[in-house]
């Protein structure tokens, strides 16, 4: 019994790492731009297709595809920002959030339909030679590729952290997030910073998408589900709090997996909802936020 429980918890942790990485980009964009891009899951879906594409064309390993998925989605994000979201940047805060949500909602439909037109509606999967390999760890079975994906999620997050705290550019992004006017006065080109932050958030979605493709099938319809997970995770972790977001992702993965095991798979999604509503009513600043 307890070893099955542990097995489920480990599996939840592996999935949760992807939830966390999938949500970090959304959280970053919200923290810096005060915009909520509800087409974030569709960006993850596009990242997944980059990896599927490279694999079917040239048998590129999905872990290598991260190197293409990230930059490709960085570009997509930059274009989307310039074409759409940039127009909202000087709106009053509530107005900005509201309009970014509306635009993201339309954009999600557009991207999903484009994916159907280009790749057709059915699922595509990447099948590298090691797809089914597992290793045992004290009686618990761990799928190799998911484990590697979790490690890479940690690495991506660590990289993001170093970028934001140790580089000039990262510092400029944080300064802009805190106080745009003060940042602009001290010579930071805030317009470019917003563009880069949005593109960076998209790039993180691209990386997450490539990692998703390692162990899950990709289809045009997965976007909304990923947006949903990302939103729940962002609320649990505290809006705009990057580390809280990642921990919340792990937490949601484990909670879903354990409740799926204990209550039956039909209701595993309900657990996310219940958690979400409880946090919203009792601790709207997030589970893992200070104060």
């Amino acid at each position: 019994m307890s070893s099955i429980l542990l097995q489920n918890a480990i599996f939840g942790l592996l999935v949760g790492g992807l939830y966390g990485l999938g949500a970090v980009g959304l959280s970053l964009v919200f923290g810096v731009l005060k915009m909520l891009n509800v087409a974030h899951g569709e960006l993850i879906m596009l990242g997944g297709y980059v990896s599927v594409w490279l694999f079917t064309l040239w048998r590129v390993d999905p872990f290598v595809s991260i190197l293409a998925g990230g930059p490709a989605l960085f570009l997509v994000g930059a274009v989307l920002y310039q074409a759409l979201f940039r127009r909202l940047i000087h709106f009053h805060e509530e107005h900005k959030i509201k309009n970014s949500i509306l635009i993201g909602f339309g954009l999600a439909l557009i991207l999903q339909t484009v994916a159907i037109l280009v790749w057709e509606a059915d699922e595509r999967a990447v099948t590298p030679s090691y797809a089914g390999s597992v290793f045992a760890l004290g009686g618990v079975v761990v799928p190799l590729s998911r484990f590697a994906a979790l490690l890479l999620s940690f690495a991506a997050l660590g990289g993001l952290h170093l970028f934001l705290t140790r580089t000039r550019y990262g510092t400029a992004i944080r300064a802009t997030a805190q106080d745009e006017q003060a940042a602009a006065l001290s010579g930071i080109p805030t317009g470019t910073i917003y563009l880069v932050a949005f593109a960076l958030g998209s790039a993180l979605a691209g990386v997450a998408g490539a990692l998703v493709s390692v162990s899950d099938a990709i289809s045009p319809a997965i976007g909304l589900n990923w947006t949903l997970k990302a939103l729940i995770v962002v609320v649990l972790g505290g809006m705009g709090n990057i580390f809280g977001t990642f921990i919340a992702g792990l937490f949601l993965g484990v909670a879903e997996s354990l409740s799926g095991f204990l209550l039956g798979n039909v209701y595993r999604e309900v657990v996310g909802l219940a958690l979400f509503l409880i946090v919203l009513s009792l601790r709207p600043q997030g589970l893992f936020a200070r104060g």
Binding site: L36, E269, L273, L277, P284
Partner: peptide, 28 residues
């Protein structure tokens, strides 16, 4: 009741989450 008390995007997120979860649960 919980989500309309809060400012920002909570209401939009809350309603989207509820709809998707109800859909998935009904489908299951």
């Amino acid at each position: 009741a919980p989500s309309l008390r809060l400012r920002g995007p909570y209401f939009a997120i809350g309603t989207l989450a509820v709809a998707e979860i109800l859909r998935i649960t009904t489908a299951n």
